[in-house]
Every structure is written in C-alpha cells, then in structure tokens.
Amino acid sequence: MARLITPLLALLALGLALLSLGLGSTQVSVITGLLDWLSGGNGADAIVIGEIRLPRTLLALAVGAALGLAGAALQGLLRNPLADPGLTGASQGAALGAATVFYFGLLPWAGAFAPALAGLCGAAIALVLMLALAGSSGAGMVLLAGLAISTLSGALLAAVLNFAPNPYAMQELVFWLLGSVSERGLEHLLLLGPALLIGFGLIWSQRRLLLGLSLGEQVAQSLGLAHKRGSRLIVLGCALLVGASVAVAGGIGFVGLLVPHLVRPLVRHRPDRLLIPSALAGASLVCLADMAVRLLPPGRELKLGVLTALIGAPLFIWLVWKERKQWI
C-alpha cells in the first residue's frame, strides 16, 4: 500500500487540477481550450483556460506542494509532529516584504507582481538574518533564531498595519495576507517554480538524514550523516518553499502543519518516504480548497487562507487532543 501512495496522490492531484480547470462561471471545454492556448490561439476558451484558470490551478498546486513538503521536512528534522514551517521566519518575512509594497507603493514597475517580488525579498532577508543569528549552532537554535526573526517581522508588520496611509491600503494588505491564488498570472509561477525546485532539491538531498534522525542526533551522526550541515540545508529549503509561497499567495495556514500528519500513517511513518506524498497531498488539498472557495455563492469572496484555517484549526485541536492522550 505504501508504494501505491505516491502514484495515487499524483493521480488525485491531476484529477483535481483538471476539475479545477473546468470549474468556473463560464462553461468551457478544458481540453480544447488548453490545446488552443498552448498552440497560441486566442479564442474565448483559450483565454479563460490559459489566462485565468491555468495560473490559478497551477499556483494552488504549487503553493500546496511547497507547504506540504516544507511541513514534512521540518517535522522530520525537529522530530516533532507539531512543528510548523512558519517557524523558519520566512513566512513573516515574506508578509512584511509584501506589506511594505502596499504601504510605500514600492516597485511600481512590477504592477500586480510587486507584492510577490517584495515578499520574496522579505523572505530572503529574514532567512539571511536567521542564519546569521543562529551562527554555527544546531537545528534547535536555527529554529529558535527563525522564531526570533519571525517575531521581529511580525512586530514590524503590525507597525505597518498600524500606520497604514489609508483604509483602502490597509484593507488591500489584510486581504492579501489572508491568502489567495486568484488574480495571479503565470509570471507568479516563474517566482514560485524555481523556489519549489531548489527547495525540493535541498530537502530531497537530505532525505536519508531525516530517516536517520528518527532515532536521534547521536544515531544519525554515527550512521555517517552530516547532521549540522544537513539540517541547515533542510531549514534553507523549507524557508525557500514557505517564503516563496507566502510571497505569491499570502498566508495559507495549517497546510504545512496538518498534511504531513495525515499522510504519515500511509507511508509507515517513515520521514524519508513522507516528502513526495506530502507535497502531492498538500497540492491536492490547496487545489480542493480553492475549488471550494470558487463554489461558494457569489458575493464577498472567502479567502483561501481563511478556508484552510477554518478547516485546519479543528483538525489541529483534534491533533493536540490525540497527542495529549498519549501523555496522560
């Protein structure tokens, strides 16, 4: 069964992607529209699929994959099922970066792409600060440094909100922070795609360390695994994934925390085999949640991040309850 999980989840993600392409207020033929768009056509179907639904679907899949993968890697590194990828400080850094765009109107030449670009810069600055603060210490201190930088970014973000120039800027910023993959173009994928690839590469290269760490740092070290260097690469990979996804889509909460937990029993709890299934399950979940957002009655749009939080929070409570019972 464990071997079938990856192909099954890949099929699920693909099926949901096709459904997502077909979902919308206008009835269009997905395959015809997609083929037409790929061949450079500019029919109505091609424009609806290629310019609106495809970017949205691909972004939902990529953001979900990034968050699911980052969560699986970080929980494996810290050997804690309650670790959240936001702990790296990159997500708050990205949020602050994007907020400064709304506040100061920076990067006017980038247009709608500006918050994402500034978000990535914010994530990168947070990452550099975190690594500088952590110095040469181990995984625990790196995460503590991440938390410290995250707190600082959070405080600055609160200050930006506090001094918002006008209610519209603040509303725009708050809505952006709530998280969404709508009204984004394929150029956002150019930002998230490389981050997803590099982050995945960094984490995948350390999958054996994640497995070795199951029995503790001492055992991992005695198995010839470079714990200190490897844990840095994993944290760096997670920060890239989370920073880029927050920069592009705002805060999509609970995916990184819960997806690995739901998938873990399906891969016999092996942290190395959890990575790809978690990425695929995260992609499926965010794509599904985005479809749910679109299916809600028209009116004020429910933001994707709000929906994942509404679903995720009760699941998190259930998780804490289950963990608590083990300690009683």
Binding site: R79, G224, R268, H269
Partner: peptide
C-alpha cells in the same frame, strides 16, 4: 554504534528500524 538510550520519534515498524542500519 548502539547508544545507551534509544527512542524512535516516529511510530516505525521493526523492519524499518532495522533497515536504518543500512543507511
């Protein structure tokens, strides 16, 4: 190396723990 204290962070099965020796 067989350290003094052992604990698996995850609910691994016997076979997977033994397979760790091949890392």
């Amino acid at each position: 190396f067989l350290p003094q204290s052992h604990h698996s962070a995850w609910s691994l099965c016997v076979e997977d723990v033994v397979a760790l020796g091949r890392l």
